[in-house]
């Protein structure tokens, strides 16, 4: 298993190398180059030359690339054009919110999706099956911002059970250590702060969970149906196992392979795609910041974001690969 993980880590090197080249080239082929993006349209030729020198753009490409890699190695992602603050600081302020939201959404999606998909498969054709498949289809069809508004209208405005916006009630004087508000409350033992943050996560979490939930229900259902039809489940039944053991040991674990892939891919998508949900619930995550960066072509922020997302995908895929090996010994050997 250790060798398997080591080999997978080695395979990351070419991936990251390719990514670094793409990131290096991208701002340099923008119309007018990065200097225009920085100065806008009104820069004089003298200013352009100056800024080219200060950015090192007059040096040979290979030298520029070397310096670029060096900065990456120091986690220096540059300074945001619009806020004039280091990109890394901007991310550190906002990323925990998005991660918190994504984790909540994935917990909801996995916690509901796998049991629902399993039950639908066990009772194929039943009302439960038809409802869960129909519902998951609806989850994919309804645009996420619309679902967000509906949940907000019902859960926050009509029923008044949940807060409609934000991450935490501003009247709670919470200490923030890590930026993960739920975790902060636990660390500082400010239980009310933790609970309030959790409460704020319910509606946006449900909204963001809709698509992964639908995907997980469907994949689990299909996968469980497939495993239920295999011979080794019949063997297990002939052994005289109880239903519970049969289900857990032979059906679910064998059915988890495609489900874990979906979970991995979905987690990556959510981290980069929580923009709409964050906007609807005025949730101060990376989403709104990113939307602004795109409209202003704030390329250091965008580069940092691309790098972040790529790293997340790469890591998530590594986790998925390793979990494959745990789930299915046939993959581990290769």
């Amino acid at each position: 298993m250790g060798r398997f993980i080591a080999r997978r880590l080695m395979q990351l090197v070419p991936t990251l190398f390719g990514l670094s080249i793409l990131l290096f080239i991208w701002p340099r082929q923008l119309p007018g180059g990065p200097e225009t993006a920085l100065l806008g349209d009104r820069g004089t030729p003298e200013q352009l030359v100056l800024i080219r020198q200060s950015l090192g753009l007059d040096e040979p490409l290979i030298v520029q690339y070397g310096k670029f890699l060096e900065r990456l190695a120091r986690f220096d992602l540059g300074t945001s054009i619009s806020t004039r603050r280091p990109v890394l600081t901007e991310f550190a302020d906002r990323f925990p919110a998005t991660v918190e939201l994504t984790v909540t959404a994935m917990i909801i999606a996995i916690g509901l999706g796998i049991p629902l998909g399993y039950l639908a498969a066990r009772h194929r054709g039943s009302i439960l099956d038809q409802l869960s498949v129909g519902w998951s289809l609806l989850g994919v069809c309804v645009p996420i911002f619309f679902l967000g508004y509906v949940l907000k209208a019902v859960g926050a405005e009509n029923l008044g059970w949940f807060p409609s916006t934000g991450r935490q009630d501003p009247t709670i004087d919470a200490t923030h250590v890590t930026g993960f508000y739920v975790l902060d409350g636990l660390l500082t033992q400010e239980w009310d702060a933790s609970l309030d943050a959790l409460w704020h996560l319910v509606l946006p979490g449900l909204t963001l969970a809709s698509i992964p939930l639908a995907a997980i229900v469907r994949i689990t259902r299909a996968s469980v149906i497939e495993v239920l039809g295999t011979e080794h489940v019949r063997t297990a039944e002939a052994k005289g196992l109880t239903d519970a053991v049969l289900r857990r040991r032979h059906v679910l674990r064998n059915a988890m392979l495609p489900v874990s892939t979906t979970i991995g891919l979905m987690t990556g998508t959510l981290l980069s795609g929580a923009v709409l949900t964050e906007t609807v619930f005025a949730f101060a995550g990376i989403g709104a910041f990113l939307a602004q960066a795109i409209s202003e072509l704030d390329y250091p922020v965008l580069m940092g974001f691309i790098l972040f997302i790529a790293l997340i995908y790469v890591l998530v895929n590594l986790v998925v690969d390793v979990s494959y090996g745990l789930i299915d010994p046939r993959i581990r050997v290769r």
Partner: peptide
Amino acid sequence: QMVFQDPMSSLDPRQN
């Protein structure tokens, strides 16, 4: 007890 036709598919691939 039963012995099945295809020893590949009738054994759980996850169990040694």
